[in-house]
Structures are given as C-alpha cells and as structure tokens.
Amino acid sequence: MSTWSETLQFDKIPLTANTPMPSLALIDLSSWGLVTLVGPDSISYLQGQVTCDVVSLAPNQSTLGAHCDAKGKMRTIFRLFHHQDGLGWFQRQSVMDTQLPELKKYAIFSKTTIEASQDILLGLAGEQASAMIDQLAGGEGDVRPLPNGTAVKIDDQRWLLAVDTETANAIAAKVAGSAILSDDSLWDLYDIRLGIPRIESGTELEFIPQSLNLQALDAISFKKGCYTGQETVARAKWRGINKRAMYLLTGPATHCPKTGDVLERSVGENWRKGGTVIAGYAFSDGEAIALVVLPNDLEEGTTFRLAAEPEGQWLQQPLPYSLDEEA
C-alpha cells in the first residue's frame, strides 16, 4: 500500500456492472512502478531492446510496448513517454525485480542510467479528467510537463501522473473536493474494458506480444530494426504461427478473477482448459469482467467458466478494437 499521503484513504469504489464511472476520480497507482532512463544513449539503447519504435516517439506522445526475451516471450508490457530529463517507463510493480535487471543488462555499453523511480504514480480518471489536467499542467499534447513530473494521457478519460511527493500532495489537495478517491482497481477496470493488457509476475515469459493483442494497440513496429525477440514476433506476423489472442469476457464470480486463473471452455458436453486470465475486476453485484488469453480459432458461441467456480457461465464480449487490422 502506498504511504506517500498520511491523510488520504484510497479504497475500492463499489460499482455494479451498470454503474456509470465517476466523473472525476483520483487513483493511487500503488501496484504500478516507474523506471527512468536518463542519458544521451537512452533512446538508441531502448530501440534495440523493445517492440515499439522509440526513435520516432515524439515528446508529446506515449506508446505501449513490450520487452521480450530472446525467444520473443514478454517480460513486461509498458507505457513509454518522455519524462523530465529522459524517458519514463510505466509497468506493473510485480515484475520490477526480475525485469529491470534484464533491461539494464547491456546498458553498461551505453551512456544511459536506468533505475527504478521514486516518483508517486497517480491516475486522474473520468469525463472531467482532461479539464483538470488543463488546470494542473496547461499546454497541449498527450504528454505534458508538471512541476517535478509529467502528465500522460492514456485514453479519453484517463491521465497518468508521475510526480514527486510534494507535487502529489498539492494535486491531491486541489482535486480532493471534487474527486472520488480510489485504489487502482478502478484503473484496472478501465484497462480491462479498453482491452489493454499487462504482464504480472505470474505471466512473465509466458506469452508473445501478439497473444495479448499488442499488434492491435500500436505497440509493435514491424518496420524498425532488430530488437530482442524480434525474430519470433516477426514470424508470428508473417507466418501466422500465433494461435492465441486476448479476449474480453464477463460472468458471475464470488471473488475477483486473478492473473493466472484458469478459464475452462465448453467442448460438447465436456469442459477443457480454455485460457488464462490476464486481469480481472469484480463488481459489487456478483458480476465480473476479465481479459483472457484464449485460442484464436474458437467457435462462435463458445461458453466458458472459471475453473474455481464451475457453476457460473461466462460469455465473450466485443473488444473495442479489431484483431484483423494490419499493424
């Protein structure tokens, strides 16, 4: 749990499956971490390490990307942006201890300093979030400087704030009167509904990028040069070797579906292991929603169930993007 504020309490907001999202929420992103890269070789070094095109990343833009091993299996999925004197790399806290040493492994040959940041990570979410960012940061673009930090637009209703403790307290004081305070389960719900994946410690080195739809989220460049795992990622595109994709499902659950939970699929009158939960959210009315990696050739109308709760039926829902688009 985050300890940057001694006076604010960030709890899960009780939402049903049909409850509108809060018009403005301040979210404590304590389950997330930030890596910073500072130095003249930071961009060129990352270009040879990750799936996205770092060289073409404009100062007012951010991008999703993946860091893979030599076999193309993902160590993490991250969001990259220009941050103060270098780059900011936003990812799940659970992979920091294993992924960060791998990212730094070859940096000894480059002029770049890579380290875990002590910045406070907050989210502003809701239909009023962009108007609040205009008050806090001003300017234009999807990445804007803040006093001792950066604001990064995630989607039409969300901004990520990476700031020092003093600025975090100042922002909290400004928005506390009009914003609901939430833990980062609300951020999870936004990610799930928008089909944005993540890698946790339990799914590290299990999937190639296309298995989690990164080609549909502009997180893979097929035109840049070589990077770690590039051969596998390219082969999955050009030879069609990838047999999995990530889908959005809903169903009943007494507990929040966790990363790594097993979803079973119906095959005639029997049930077989169908997929792996990437992220889940449990509503207060007994319904749940999850991103799940499944075979990409399932028959339409296939039903599913959580292996741990076999009495409930889950159904596939449409993703907010197409998996047929060319990347």
Rank of each mutant, 00 (worst) to 15 (best):
I278R: 00
V50N: 07
E204R: 14
T98S: 05
S2P: 00
I43S: 15
L248D: 09
L37V: 05
L122K: 05
R79I: 08
P310G: 00
A70H: 15
W159A: 03
F109G: 05
T150S: 00
N296T: 01
L37D: 02
G141K: 05
A116M: 07
G268M: 05
L205D: 11
L181E: 13
L87Y: 06
T19R: 00
R244T: 02
T76F: 03
Q9M: 14
A66C: 14
G312C: 13
V38Q: 15
L291A: 01
H67Q: 00
C68Y: 00
L64Q: 14
G123A: 02
S44F: 09
L80H: 08
D53I: 08
D156P: 03
L103R: 12
L46V: 12
K104E: 13
T250D: 06
H255M: 15
Y247P: 14
I108K: 15
R305N: 12
F78E: 15
P101Q: 14
L294A: 07
R75T: 04
A131Y: 05
E311R: 09
Q313L: 06
L212R: 05
A216Y: 02
Q313I: 05
R239C: 12
N148I: 03
W32G: 14
L294F: 04
A25Y: 12
K258W: 15
R158T: 13
F78W: 11
E300W: 07
V277G: 10
L57Y: 01
G138A: 09
P320I: 12
A131P: 13
L15I: 01
S62Q: 13
N296D: 01
A107C: 13
V143Y: 03
Q157E: 12
S185W: 08
M1F: 01
E140G: 13
A58E: 10
S5D: 06
G86P: 04
L181W: 14
E309K: 07
A168M: 00
L57M: 02
G88C: 04
S178C: 15
G39V: 02
Y321N: 09
L121D: 06
T112I: 04
K153E: 11
N270S: 11
L37G: 07
D155N: 08
D164T: 02
T19G: 05
P310F: 03
G139M: 14
L136G: 06
G280S: 08
G65V: 12
D142Q: 14
T167Y: 04
T51N: 01
T303H: 00
M21L: 09
Y45R: 06
E206H: 13
D164V: 04
E299T: 00
L124E: 02
L248I: 04
Y247R: 10
P320H: 07
A151N: 04
G251Q: 00
L26M: 09
L160E: 11
L189Y: 02
L161V: 09
A253F: 07
A151E: 07
I27F: 10
V293G: 10
